[in-house]
Structures are given as C-alpha cells and as structure tokens.
C-alpha cells in the first residue's frame, strides 16, 4: 500500500478502506517488529556468549537456529508486502463510528507502546543476571536441586579429597544430606557466589549464593552456603560477588535456620562470572 493509495482512500468520514489500512498497519508491523526485536536479541546474545543469562545451555543450538530462521522470515516480510484486505470486513458491521475509531486508535496505540517497550527493554537495556531481589522473594535452598544427581557428583568429589573443587551447588547438596559437624570438621570450603543476607539474621550471617536454572531464568531457584561474619555489611554489599574460603562449624547465630556455617578465613571480591547460574 503506497502513500498515494492512502490519500486516495481518505475522506472526512472513515471508510472501510482506511479502516482496513489501520488494521493492516497495526497487525502487520506489530508482529514483525516484535519478532525482529526477539531474533536480534537472541542472535546477539548467542554471538557474545550471554544466552546463558536467560536460558539453559541445552537450548542454545535450537534457539539460535530458530532465531536465524525467524530473521529470514522477518526480512522477507519487508520484501513481500501484502495489500490490506479492507474488502473482507463482515457485512453489516459499522466501520466509521466512534466506537470503531476508538478501538482502532487503542489498537494502534497499544501496538506502538508495546513495540517501544520491547525495543527499550530487550535491545536497549544491557543483559543482566537475576539479583538478590528475586533470591529474597524465593526461599533460599527451598528447591531447584536434583538432589540425587548433585549428591552423587558431590560424593565423588569428596572421595578425591579435592574440596576446593566443590562449588556452592555441591556443598548445598552435601549439607542437605547431612549436617553432622564431625563430617565437615576437616574440610575447607572455597566457594564463589553473590552476597545474599540471611533473612533470619542479616547482621551476622549471609549466604554465598547462586541461582540454579532448570530451563530458563524464570525457574531459577536460589541456593547458598551460610557464612558467619558479624558486621559483614561494612565491607560488602548485597549482590557483590565474592570468593569465600573457610571451615565449617556450628552456626553461632541462634536466629539463623542453618545449623552449620562457614567461618571465613578470607573473603575476596571477584568479578561476576560470565556464566553466573549453575545447572
């Protein structure tokens, strides 16, 4: 539909032709625009190694391939332009009254607002991992681990005596199996995660936390190992990434729900890893 065709169809009173044109514009560019935003964001995240901020690695190839196919169709949609099917409006329905005009304006405005929001949120904002706000909203260590598989993996690593290789996930899995202090007496933990205050005793205890992702970030569950360090807020902020080394002991905090906690020997600030989630 060319601009000339638009002007030919314009009359003081809205006609079926202009009504069809409005619907055509709203329907056509809404889908193509949103698809464009999604496929570009997906391909860019894949190319820069950041898809893991949003989805599980098992979907990387499928997602990238389908985004590539989507990109082909999006570009083709610009190349093949259809006419608005203005003649197909059902007979007997008014097209130029205020109600119809209002709905049409609402549809156009809604489409424009949605496209603008999508462009800003999906393309404009830098990719980001989930923060402690979501971790606090979801109960830490309340789920997310395939306990059997994680416990087997942790047990294998414990068997080697190489405790430095145990991550937050393995330690949480072991602690879920047993909280007998004697079992952890001779073991030093060296774990990396973000700082998450213990809701029960935020002044003295924080978690070295990670999110476990099963399919995508929406199902992320926070897990963490408790660290006893009174006054930690003076040195670290919530959401800071740290590497904590220390030994396990009975948690001195009477309010914390965790019976064991790490007494840190060192707490080093570290950069957020490129793959912040665990699987």
């Amino acid at each position: 539909m060319s601009p000339r065709a638009v002007s030919r169809g314009t009359t003081p009173r809205k006609t079926p032709r202009t009504d069809g044109l409005s619907r055509y514009l709203a329907e056509r560019w809404r889908g193509i625009g949103l698809s464009l935003v999604v496929v570009v964001a997906t391909l860019w995240l894949g190319a820069t190694g950041q898809l893991g901020l949003y989805i599980h690695p098992r979907y990387f190839i499928f997602t990238t391939v389908m985004a590539g196919l989507g990109l082909v169709f999006v570009v083709a949609s610009f190349a093949f332009r259809t006419r608005p099917a203005d003649e197909s409006r059902p007979a007997g329905r008014p097209t130029g009254d205020r109600t119809t005009a209002g709905r049409r304006a609402l549809a156009l405005g809604g489409s424009a607002a949605l496209l603008t929001f999508a462009a800003v949120a999906v393309l404009g904002l830098p990719p980001a991992t989930l923060t402690s706000a979501t971790a606090i909203q979801r109960e830490v260590n309340s789920g997310g681990l395939d306990s059997e598989a994680a416990a087997e993996e942790a047990a294998d690593l414990v068997g080697t005596g190489d405790y430095d290789r145990l991550s937050v996930k393995e330690w949480v899995s072991l602690l879920a199996q047993s909280e007998d202090p004697a079992l952890y007496a001779d073991k030093t933990a060296s774990i990396t995660g973000f700082v998450l205050p213990d809701a029960a005793d935020p002044d003295n205890v924080f978690y070295v936390a990670r999110f476990v992702v099963t399919c995508c970030a929406v199902d992320a569950q926070p897990i963490g190992v408790a660290v006893y360090q009174p006054g930690w807020q003076a040195s670290y902020d919530t959401d800071d990434w740290v590497q904590v080394s220390g030994t396990f002991m009975s948690n001195p905090s009477s309010r914390s729900a965790d019976s064991l906690a790490v007494l840190p020997t060192t707490i080093e600030p570290v950069d957020q890893p490129s793959d912040p989630y665990v699987y």
């Binding site: 999604v38 997602t63 399919c215």
Partner: peptide
Amino acid sequence: FAGWGVPDRAQDTITLALSVIIESAPFVFL
C-alpha cells in the same frame, strides 16, 4: 546504557520476562 540505574526489581522483571520470551519464541516460530 549500564548507568541508567534500573532498580533491582524492575531489572529482574525484565530479565525474567526476557528469559520466557527467548525460551518460548523458537517454539512459537516452529
């Protein structure tokens, strides 16, 4: 644009929504 200073909850809302969109869109295209 990292310095825009989006609040954590707003940022997490966008991250969560985007994760569903990126996960779902390939299946929708299929």
